[in-house]
């Protein structure tokens, strides 16, 4: 079963498999959220939302509702 970014636990690493182009804004892709790139969940706010990520060296935060559209494979 495939996971989404929302399933990641704090400190865990993963590789991005696919990004739904309908739900995900171009801006996020431009910041490095692309298939093949590595991602780590750095920190979560209460209720695991938003999520503070390190994608490919870029540190950014996105909401859980966005994270569920990004498919990953845990490392």
């Amino acid at each position: 079963m495939s996971h989404t970014l929302a399933d990641l636990k704090r400190g865990e690493h993963a590789v991005i498999l696919d990004v739904s182009s309908v739900e995900i804004p171009l801006k996020l892709l431009e910041m490095g959220c692309l298939p093949g790139n590595k991602v780590q969940l750095v920190q979560v706010a209460p209720f695991s939302d938003p999520m503070y990520l390190n994608i490919n060296g870029t540190h950014l935060a996105i909401r859980k509702e966005t994270a569920i559209h990004i498919l990953i494979e845990k490392l």
């Binding site: 804004p25 996020l28 870029t58 540190h59 950014l60 935060a61 996105i62 909401r63 966005t66």
Partner: peptide
């Protein structure tokens, strides 16, 4: 459509 991206700079 809401999306939220914020860069966490150094």
């Amino acid at each position: 459509k809401t999306f939220f991206v914020v860069e966490m700079p150094n």
